[in-house]
Design a protein around this nucleic acid. Sequence first.
DNA 1: AAGAGAAAGTGACAAATGTCATCTGTTTTT
DNA 2: AAAAACAGATGACATTTGTCACTTTCTCTT
Lengths: 208, 208
Amino acid sequence: MKVLVVDDDRVVGISLKTILEAEPDITVPALGRDGAEAIALYKEHQPDILLMDIRMEGMNGLDAAATILATDSSAKILFLTTFSDDEYIVRALRLGAKGYLLKQDFESIVPALHAVYGGQNVFGSEVVKKIPDILSTPKEPDVSELPLNEKEIEIMKLVAEGLNNKEIAQTLFLSEGTVRNYLSSTLEKLELRDRTQLAIYYYKHLQP
Amino acid sequence: MKVLVVDDDRVVGISLKTILEAEPDITVPALGRDGAEAIALYKEHQPDILLMDIRMEGMNGLDAAATILATDSSAKILFLTTFSDDEYIVRALRLGAKGYLLKQDFESIVPALHAVYGGQNVFGSEVVKKIPDILSTPKEPDVSELPLNEKEIEIMKLVAEGLNNKEIAQTLFLSEGTVRNYLSSTLEKLELRDRTQLAIYYYKHLQP
DNA sequence: AAGAGAAAGTGACAAATGTCATCTGTTTTT
DNA sequence: AAAAACAGATGACATTTGTCACTTTCTCTT
């Protein structure tokens, strides 16, 4: 099994290579030092598994993973990272990472690689424990702290449901002109151009 | 501790009530049978915890939870559901459910209630095990199976980024008129009215 | 009661949007 | 080669949208 190792700490990279190649069935064709190298080396060596750090100088591991997965959706990527990278866990999971291990868990790396090679997902128990917390904490600034007043917020929500001005007016018992005025001020406050961008903003930043 | 129980199966509801009220510190002020009742009863009784099924006749548990959380964001909601409701888990977590238990896990309900009452999150181990799988599998019918051709899909994506027709035309090296025509056919195929609804559609149905 | 200030409305305008019928080249089919 | 299919473009049109200046109406303050 070919395992490409990417970590911006040279010492870690070499240690990993040593450990992994002590296994009879593992080879490490190359060591990368950042996301860009990961992409290039992945393309060159077509490893069975990519074992990569997340926080790195230059391109980070998540963006590299996204790029690699875009061309090879079956890529098996296993992140090896430090505990404090909480906020990355969700993104890694979404991307379709096959695993997410903590560097502390040194001895579980080899078994994890075997498991991933066999098609399993591997997430360290500390990681799994964090998932509900992470998912259940509202990720983005909630409506309450926007510089919008009540009406503007209501209108924004209706825009985000796809209503046009006339329908919004009927729903809120306002004239269409008033709705337009509120919408206009909302757009200005959020520095957006039109209702479509507002709907997008809503789904990107404000959704449960 | 007041626990509102909502399940559309009367037998389950009554069983739960019996079990819970055997505990000295738990009372069950009412039994609801669907989401709409859940909302009304929640408002009426202000329970400490809402214990609710997800799949129910009439309004489902998730929509009810969303409504309740909209007015009382500190509501403690614990879903009790069957194993097959996989695709709901993520939504439940996002909403900020405090727990997600399987009905099989009957004996863990009481301790779970105590834990939630104490501010903890409780997710059955089978549920936690599923999370990575669920998150890493693309949830929705992906672009490939839409009745749209290449150009229409590209345009849809750009609309979903908030570009106007002129910008889309420049990006794709098409005339603005052509962009409009493609957009028009896209809207018709998806039975949508305007670009805002299209952007919403994109984020609701097609986003990773 | 007078006046300040919201909240809501009006009217006018330019720009953007969505629809339609039609036209122009290419490529494919037969 | 003729016909059909296709991608792209055009121009006209009715609507919708966003902006702005201004008015009306209500509410609160003093």
